[in-house]
Amino acid sequence: MRRRLYEITGRALLYGCAAVTASLLLFFIGYILFRGIGGISWRFLSTAESVINGTVGILPAIKNTVFIIVVSLMVSLPLGVGAAVYLTEYARNRRFVAAIEFASETLAGIPSIIYALVGVIIFCTALKLQKTLLAGSLTLVIMILPTIIRSTQESLKTVPQSYREGALGLGSGKWHMIRTVVLPSSVDGIVTGCILAVGRVVGESAVLMYTAGMSMAMQSFSLDRVAGASGATLTVALYHYAKENADFSVAFSIATILLILTVIINFSASFLGRKLKRS
């Protein structure tokens, strides 16, 4: 009898909790699409907000997001790949490796509001960048570094030792071997790392709200003005519309776009990850 009871409650808990999770998911995604998809049109995506015409557009936010992704990856990618190469190819000193890995784990565990503070203290104030897209991008460089280090490192580890020995045996130098043999065969992992990093940048809001500004106006990205450009990314724009304008239909439309971007990012990352595992 007791055993039967155990069986029944156990089963109820298992299926019940799984059902809760599944219905939560369905409701969440369904609700966002339901309220947001109607507001998305070509004009919404391709213009800036215009008070005169009474129209809403998020092109500036899209451009700002792309700018931040590009700049932060441009800095973080070489640093992260370099660190991973050092860790897997060059490092001899075990203490050194432990210190770098610990640092990277620590960076990964720091919440974004702390990064926001650090960005405000270091980039906006100490380096006098003010609240600009540049300051935001540089703060995000620190934030996505561990992501890139980790996935590059994982894929470097899967490169067979025999490749390295073959290249060295044919008389290649170490740097030549890394450049022509090791890095090309781990490009999948590096790209996966970039995609995950893009995901973090797209989803980030706290850091950018305080370091990159909240303006919804179109920014100039010409070379002489770019250092002064400041504005909202998609997530910050969502916050702005929801909390400060109480314009929920626009907020849900942005949420829908973010949802679609997340789906694309997740699928491409897991597709590449699976390809990596197979090889």
């Binding site: 799984a18 999770t21 599944a22 998911l25 969440f28 995604i29 966002i32 995901g199 797209v202 989803g203 980030e204 809001s205 706290a206 997530t235 910050v236 969502l238 916050y239 929801a242 929920f248 907020a251 849900f252 949420a255 973010l258 949802l259 997340t262 789906v263 990012i265 997740n266 699928f267 897991s270």
Partner: peptide, 18 residues
């Protein structure tokens, strides 16, 4: 379910807030 759960992990926090 698995990809759906990882989708949930990737959704930006402002969307949860909204």
């Amino acid at each position: 379910l698995r990809p759906a759960v990882s989708l949930l992990a990737g959704i930006p926090s402002v969307v949860y807030g909204l």
